[in-house]
């Protein structure tokens, strides 16, 4: 199997942002510029998450989706604040290929089955955002803000039963920290379900990515900080243009010590050298 390397872009208003534990959001720039860079550098998929959509019940992503889908001919998954079949329809019409739901799915699990019936299972990704409490993995909603008491592993099995095509599994504890993926959490889920699992949250180095694929059996990985900081580092003139959010991070050009920024090329070269299947860009020999 070829493991997908997915560029995850968290969006707030017009900006690409990045937090730690899904909070303390810093503005990084224009989502489309990052998306275009990842597209040209061999990203296997793009994943847009509107990180405040559930909180404010707003849907502002459509224009960004459309502009991206006209430029990047790779799969685009979109999540954040999707609550109804009509919401999903709108995002797909804007140019998304797959959609991701969390809050609406936990609040009403039947919504998964309903969405699968209308759009097909391969279009529906369910996000499970997990916080570890007293040794238990619990699923949270609203981008890791709201407690539900739902056991993450039981929920993953239920999500599969309801027909979802994929699970995007986030460790909120690790998200943005660069401390590595939560390997127990990921492994527990990948060995309990038969649908693909995207590991998200914690990648600090290419070794972390290797480890979560080999040891925790992740089918795909979603990467944010590790890629974003690489792009920011190599493009000294920050791209942020719009007014919303905290810009301090960009002005200072600081990178967290735990994160070793790395490009998609470097990640794929590394995985290939380790014998881990993934798509790589070939030199064209057939022109």
């Amino acid at each position: 199997m070829n493991h997908r390397i997915i560029a995850r872009l968290d969006i707030k208003g017009p900006n690409l942002v990045k937090g730690i534990h899904l909070e303390g959001l810093r503005v990084l720039g224009s989502p489309e510029e990052f998306a275009e860079h990842y597209y040209n550098n061999g990203a296997d998929e793009l994943f847009y998450q509107d990180v405040v959509a559930s909180l404010y019940e707003r849907n502002s992503l459509d224009d960004i989706i459309t502009r991206t889908a006209k430029m990047a001919f790779i799969p685009l998954t979109v999540g954040g604040g999707l609550r109804t079949i009509e919401d999903i329809n709108r995002v797909l019409r804007a140019g998304a290929d797959k959609i991701c739901i969390n809050t609406a799915a936990i609040n009403n699990p039947k919504f998964i089955a309903e969405a699968v019936k209308v759009f097909g299972s391969s279009t529906i990704v369910v996000a499970i955002e997990v916080i570890k409490q007293s040794g238990k993995y619990l699923a949270y909603t609203d981008n890791g803000r709201e407690y539900t008491g739902v056991d993450a592993l039981e929920w993953a099995k239920k999500v599969e039963e309801l027909g979802a095509g994929e699970i995007c599994l986030t460790s909120v504890d690790r998200e943005g920290t660069g401390l590595g993926f939560d390997s127990d959490l990921i492994k527990n889920v990948t060995t309990s379900v038969s649908i693909p699992v995207i590991a998200h949250g914690g990648a600090g180095s290419k070794e972390d990515i290797e480890k979560v694929i080999v040891e925790s059996k992740a089918d795909a990985v979603a990467l944010a900080s590790i890629l974003h900081y690489d792009f920011v580092r190599k493009n000294k003139n920050p791209l942020a243009t719009k007014s919303e959010g905290n810009f301090e991070f960009l002005k200072n050009n600081s990178v967290f010590k735990k994160i070793n920024p790395v490009s998609l090329f470097e990640i794929k070269d590394y995985l290939n050298a380790k014998g881990i299947g993934c798509r790589f860009l070939m030199e064209n020999t057939n022109e």
């Binding site: 070829n2 997908r4 296997d44 299972s121 038969s194 693909p196 089918d219």
Partner: peptide
Amino acid sequence: SKIKVPQIGWN
């Protein structure tokens, strides 16, 4: 061994 179905990804 278990096969993931659908196949989703690059091949």
